[in-house]
Design a protein around this nucleic acid. Structure first.
Length: 968
DNA sequence: GAGCACTGC
C-alpha cells in the first residue's frame, strides 16, 4: 500500500509524455554470462556518449530511465530492510480528531480539479497565469536559441556622448590631482606595456593577461581600454565589466580606480556586489563586480547586451563561479562576435586558460616584488636544533603504497644526499630520517619564533606572518607564547587572524608596529589572498592548509588539513616581499616542496554540485552532465549523479532533469536549494520572519563568533536557543535580538555575535522577502509584516517547516550518556559538532534531528540541528508507506524514506495519508499558482493547513520518553 | 570537545 511518491513537484509520472520511446538495443547472439553484461554496459556507455552530443531536449533519456529503475530497486531493498528498523516514535490521534479530519477531507474534495489532469508533465493544465507563461518559456528555452535571437541588436554609438567623454578626459589631463595620480601609475610595470595590451585586446576577441602581484593589471587594464576608446572618439561604445572573486576587492579596486581618475565612485567607475552597489554612468564606464553578480545578471541577460568588454580577474584561483563563467562565455562569444573577453590570472597557470580558449593570445606583465629568501625545514632544524616529539622511526609497513614509493624514490635519496654533502649537522638528517609523518608542529614554530625574535643578528623591524591551517593551531600557538612569558604585550603585538574571530582593532593589523615592538600575525589562509598586510617581511609557512573536499561516491563533504600546493607556498612566500626584501621559512623539506602538487584541486572538484546545477538550469544550459563536462576540469560523473538525485528528491528537477515549478522558485532565490523550499512553505504557513533569518544564516554564515582563549560563546548561543533545542531557532533569535536591541553593540558583545554579519543577514532577509513578494507568495515585502507572520511564534510549526526544508537530512539520537550518540538513517555513526546547542543536551524528547550541514573532519559532524517530532517528517518526508500487521511483519504503522518507521493504528495511518495527499495538492498548486493563502477567511486551503498546524503543535507539547527509542 | 576561504541584479 504505497502512496504515490509525493513531493510537490508537478510531476508525478516518471514516464515522460511525448518523449521518444526507448529502444533497447538487441544483443548479438552467442554471448554468454558476463559477456552479456559487458555488452550492455558498453551499449549504455555508447548511448550516453552519443546523446550527450545531441541537442538539449532529447538527451540522455535512457540514463534517466536507468536512474529511475535503480532508485526503484533501492527503494524495494530498503523496504525489505525496514522490517529490522526500530520504530522512531508513535503517532496518536483521538477518534474525534480522525473524525474531524475525515469530515474536512470530504468537504474539501476537488479543491483543485485541474490537478487530476493526466498530462501533467507538459504543465498545460496550469491556469493561465503570468507564472505559467514565465515558467513554460523558461523550461522550453535554451541558451543558444536565446543568444541567436538576442544578439542581433546593433552596436550602440552616440556622437554627442563620444565628444563629451573626450572633452572631459582632455580637461582632466590638465588637472594637478590627475597628473599626480598619473605619476604614481607610471611606475607600474603594466604601464610600460600599455600599447601592447591595447593592441592585443583590439585585435583579438579573447586575450589572456598574466602578471604577478604588483604589476598593476587589476587597476590598469580596464582603464587602458576605456581611455583608448574615449581618445578614439568611441567612448560611448565602451561598457566594461570587470569581475573580482571577493566583495571587498570589488569595492576597493573600484575606489582605487576612481581615485586614479580623480573622480568619485559613480562617475565612469562603479561597483556592484550583492546588496550593495554604486553604478557608474551607463556608457564609457567600468563596473567592478563580484563573479556572482555577473552570473546572476546572465540569467536575465545571457547575451550581455550592451557590454563591450568582460574582464575576469584572478581566474587562477579557480573558484567555482569563475570556472563556470569562462565556460558559459565560450558559448556567448559564438554569437556576440563584437564582445571582448579578457582573462587575467597569475603567471603560474595562465597557459592553461589560453589553451582552454583555443590558444588565445597571451601576454605576460612582469610583476614587481622584492626578493624573498627561502629556507626549508632542514635549515630551520639546523637553526633551532629542534627535536620532534614522540618521533619514532618510520614504520614503513603502515605507509600507503604511494607514500612508500615516494619515500624510497625521492625522500630517502635526498636525505642521503644531504648527509653526503655534510651541509647540515647529523642531528638534522637524523630528525628528517626519523620523521614519522609530516604534520604541523606548533612547538617548532614556537622555537623558530624565539630564534627570530631574540637572536642578536635579527634587527628587522617588519612584521612576522605565520600561516597555520586552522583555529586550533592559532589557539595552541597563542597559548604557548603567552605561557612562555617571552612575548610580553609591551614588546609584541600578537594578532590572530581567522574569519570567525572578532576583528580586533582594524588599524592595529595594518599599521606598522610602534618602535620597539614587533607585530606577529598568526593567520589561516585568509592572509593568503583576502587580507594583505603590507609591512610583513618574514613569513613562516607551516606547509599545510585546511581544505574542503567531497567523497565522489557518497557525496559526503570533508574538511581536513592537507599539504599546500606550490602555488600556495609561492603566494605565502610573496607576502614577505611587499615593501622590502623578506624571508620565508617553509616548514617542509626542499624535496617535499618539489614533490608538492602545482595547484590545489579546483573548487568545482571539491564541492557538491546542487547549487551549480540549479544555476546552470536557470541559465538554460541543458543537461547538467553535458554542460559540466565542458568545464576546464569536469567533475566526476558519479558526483553529478549524486547531486542530481538529491535535486530530484527535493522536487526541484523532474525525471527528465527539467526544473519543476518548485525548482524554478528554488533556483531564483539566492539561497541553498533546501532553504528556498523552507521559505516558500513559510509564506504559505504565514511565518516568514524566523525562516528568513534561518535561510539567510544557513546560506551565508552564522553570526556567532569564536574566541582564542576560553569559549563563552557556546554558552551564549545556548542561551539564544531559549530551550528550543534548535540551532536554527537560535539563529532566528540572534537576529531578532539584534533588531530589537536598543544598544546593538552591547548585544553583540554579550552574545559573541558579529554585527557586520548580522547587518548583512538583515539585508539578505529583506532581499528574500522582496523575492517572495515579487513571486506573489506574500502580501508584503517587509520581513516582519504582521500578515505574513501570523504564526511566527509557533515554535513547533517553525521546526516542522525547517524539517520540511532540510529533509532528507535526518539523524537519529540513539542514546545520551556523556554526550548524545547519533546515527544517520542509514546507520552511519555521527556526532553533533560541539558548536551545536544540541551537543550539550542531556535529554531528548524525540530522537529525530534534522540538519543542514554535515562535514567529516575528525568525526562525521552535524554542524546545526533541530529536534523534530514524527508528524513533521511524516507530513513532509517522501516515500510514505502504510504498513499493516501481517504474518512476517508485526509492525503496524507508517514509514517514510524507506528507513524510518512510526507506530500508529491503521485508521490513524489512513487519516494521515489522506491529509498528507491533500497537503501535497496544496503545495503543488501553490508553487505553480503563486499566491498567498488567505488566513483571514475559512477557505479550504486554510482549513487543511490549519489542521496540520494544530496536529504538529499538539505533538510538540507531548513529552515523549527517550528510553523507548534507546538502542541500548 | 572543536569551526579553511569565498560568493548570489
Amino acid at each position: 500500500m504505497t502512496s504515490r511518491h509525493s513531493n510537490w513537484r508537478l510531476d508525478k509520472n516518471s514516464e515522460p509524455s511525448g518523449s521518444k520511446p526507448y529502444n533497447r538495443p538487441k544483443r548479438p547472439p552467442g554471448l554468454r554470462g558476463r559477456a552479456i553484461g559487458l555488452w550492455y554496459r558498453d551499449q549504455m556507455a555508447k548511448k550516453r556518449l552519443d546523446q550527450s552530443s545531441l541537442e538539449v531536449e532529447n538527451e540522455d533519456f535512457s540514463s534517466s530511465r536507468a536512474r529511475a529503475k535503480e532508485a526503484k530497486l533501492q527503494r524495494k531493498k530498503s523496504f525489505e530492510k525496514l522490517k529490522d528498523e526500530k520504530p522512531l516514535g508513535s503517532i496518536l490521534l483521538s477518534d474525534q480528531k480522525k473524525k474531524n479530519i475525515n469530515i474536512l477531507l470530504n468537504e474539501t474534495l476537488d479543491m483543485y480539479p485541474s490537478l487530476q489532469s493526466k498530462n501533467i508533465t507538459s504543465y498545460e493544465h496550469l491556469s493561465d497565469t503570468e507564472f505559467k507563461h514565465e515558467f513554460l518559456q523558461h523550461i522550453r528555452g535554451n541558451m543558444m536559441e536565446n543568444l541567436k535571437r538576442k544578439c542581433q541588436i546593433s552596436k550602440y554609438d552616440n556622437e554627442a556622448e563620444n565628444e563629451r567623454f573626450l572633452d572631459e578626459l582632455k580637461d582632466k589631463k590638465k588637472k594637478h590631482a590627475y597628473k599626480q595620480m598619473q605619476n604614481v601609475r607610471n611606475i607600474l610595470p603594466s604601464m610600460k606595456m600599455k600599447k601592447e595590451i591595447i593592441d592585443l585586446i583590439h585585435n583579438n576577441q579573447i586575450t589572456v593577461i598574466s602578471g604577478e602581484t604588483g604589476c598593476g593589471k587589476t587597476t590598469q587594464v580596464a582603464q587602458f581600454i576605456l581611455d583608448d576608446l574615449i581618445e578614439k572618439g568611441q567612448g560611448s561604445q565602451c561598457k566594461i565589466i570587470c569581475t573580482q572573486p571577493r566583495r571587498i576587492s570589488a569595492i576597493s579596486v573600484a575606489e582605487r580606480v576612481a581615485a586614479e581618475r580623480d573622480e568619485n565612485i559613480g562617475g565612469s567607475v562603479g561597483f556592484q556586489i550583492r546588496l550593495e552597489k554604486v553604478m557608474p554612468r551607463n556608457r564609457g564606464s567600468i563596473l567592478f563586480c563580484t563573479t556572482g553578480v555577473l552570473l546572476k545578471r546572465m540569467e536575465t541577460d545571457p547575451s550581455l547586451n550592451e557590454i563591450s568588454h568582460i574582464i575576469l580577474d584572478e581566474i587562477h584561483e579557480r573558484d567555482i563561479i569563475s570556472d563556470f563563467l569562462i565556460t558559459v562565455l565560450k558559448d556567448v562569444i559564438q554569437f556576440r562576435k563584437d564582445i571582448k573577453i579578457i582573462l587575467m590570472s597569475a603567471t603560474l597557470n595562465s597557459e592553461a586558460f589560453s589553451k582552454y580558449y583555443n590558444e588565445a593570445p597571451h601576454i605576460n606583465i612582469p610583476g614587481f616584488t622584492y626578493p624573498v629568501q627561502e629556507y626549508f625545514l632542514e635549515d630551520v632544524l639546523q637553526m633551532t636544533n629542534f627535536k620532534f616529539e614522540d618521533n619514532r622511526p618510520i614504520w614503513r609497513k603502515k605507509m600507503s603504497v604511494g607514500r612508500k614509493r615516494e619515500w624510497h624514490e625521492f625522500i630517502e635519496p635526498y636525505i642521503r644526499q644531504l648527509e653526503a654533502e655534510k651541509k647540515y649537522s647529523r642531528h638534522v638528517t637524523n630528525e628528517l630520517r626519523n620523521l614519522e609523518y609530516e604534520r604541523v608542529d606548533i612547538n617548532l614554530i614556537f622555537e623558530l619564533l624565539l630564534k627570530l625574535c631574540f637572536s642578536q643578528k635579527n634587527n628587522d623591524d617588519g612584521a612576522i606572518l605565520i600561516f597555520v591551517p586552522g583555529l586550533a593551531d592559532i589557539q595552541k600557538l597563542s597559548k604557548l607564547m603567552k605561557e612562555s612569558e617571552k612575548f610580553p604585550m609591551s614588546k609584541f603585538i600578537i594578532i590572530p587572524l581567522h574569519s570567525q574571530l572578532p576583528t580586533m582593532d582594524q588599524k592595529q593589523i595594518f599599521k606598522p608596529a610602534p618602535k620597539g615592538t614587533k607585530k606577529i600575525i598568526i593567520a589561516t589562509n585568509i592572509a593568503e589572498t583576502s587580507i594583505t598586510i603590507d609591512d610583513v617581511t618574514t613569513v613562516i609557512d607551516c606547509g599545510f592548509i585546511k581544505i574542503s573536499n567531497v567523497d565522489t561516491e557518497t557525496g559526503i563533504e570533508t574538511l581536513n588539513a592537507e599539504m599546500v600546493s606550490q602555488a600556495n607556498a609561492a603566494q605565502r612566500k610573496g607576502r614577505a616581499g611587499r615593501v622590502k626584501p623578506g624571508i620565508c621559512y617553509h616548514l617542509i623539506t626542499k624535496i617535499r616542496y618539489d614533490l608538492l602538487d602545482k595547484f590545489l584541486k579546483p573548487e568545482v572538484l571539491r564541492k557538491r554540485l546542487e547549487d551549480v546545477i540549479l544555476q546552470l538550469k536557470m541559465l538554460q544550459l541543458g543537461k547538467a552532465e553535458s554542460f559540466l563536462s565542458k568545464l576546464m576540469d569536469p567533475p566526476e560523473s558519479k558526483l553529478v549523479q549524486v547531486s542530481l538525485n538529491l535535486l530530484q528528491r527535493l522536487g526541484a528537477l523532474n525525471s527528465e532533469e527539467n526544473l519543476t515549478p518548485l525548482g524554478y522558485h528554488m533556483a531564483k532565490l539566492p539561497v541553498p536549494a533546501q532553504c528556498s523550499k523552507m521559505l516558500i512553505l513559510a509564506s504559505l504557513f504565514s511565518c516568514v520572519d524566523p525562516i528568513l533569518s534561518i535561510a539567510a544564516s544557513l546560506g551565508f554564515k552564522e553570526a556567532n563568533q569564536l574566541s582564542v582563549s576560553q569559549d563563552d560563546s557556546d554558552k551564549r548561543k545556548y542561551q539564544l536557543s531559549m530551550g528550543t533545542k534548535s540551532d536554527h531557532i537560535a539563529m532566528h533569535y540572534a537576529l531578532r535580538g539584534y533588531e530589537d536591541a536598543e544598544y546593538k553593540y552591547g548585544f553583540c558583545k554579550e552574545f559573541f555575535l558579529s554585527s557586520s554579519i548580522l547587518r548583512l543577514l538583515i539585508e539578505m532577509r529583506k532581499q528574500f522577502a522582496q523575492h517572495l513578494f515579487d513571486m506573489k507568495f506574500t502580501s508584503s515585502s517587509h520581513p516582519r509584516s504582521p500578515s505574513d507572520n501570523l504564526n511566527s511564534d509557533n515554535v513547533a510549526l517553525i521546526k516542522a517547516i525547517i524539517s520540511a526544508g532540510l529533509y532528507p537530512n535526518v539523524a537519529v539520537v540513539t542514546g545520551c550518556k556523556r554526550v548524545p550518540k547519533l546515527r544517520s538513517v542509514s546507520h552511519e555513526k555521527m556526532e553533533f559538532h560541539p558548536k551545536s546547542v544540541l551537543s550539550k543536551e542531556k535529554s531528548f524528547s524525540s530522537p529525530l534531528i534534522v540538519y543542514h550541514t554535515r562535514i567529516k573532519s575528525s568525526s562525521l559532524y552535524i554542524h546545526d540541528g533541530t529536534i523534530v517530532f514524527p508528524l513533521s517528517l511524516v507530513f513532509f518526508g517522501d516515500q510514505f508507506r502504510i504498513h499493516e500487521k501481517t504474518s512476517n511483519d508485526r509492525f503496524s504503522g507508517v514509514s517514510i524514506n524507506g528507513t524510518m518507521r512510526f507506530v500508529c493504528t491503521q485508521s490513524t495511518a489512513s487519516a494521515i495519508q489522506n491529509l498528507r495527499d491533500r497537503l501535497n495538492q496544496i503545495l503543488e498548486w501553490k508553487v505553480s499558482h503563486p499566491g498567498q493563502v488567505s488566513w483571514a477567511e475559512d477557505n479550504p486551503e486554510l482549513r487543511i493547513l490549519k489542521t496540520i498546524m494544530e496536529l504538529i503543535t499538539m505533538e510538540d507539547n507531548e513529552d515523549l520518553d527517550l528510553s523507548d527509542y534507546d538502542d541500548n
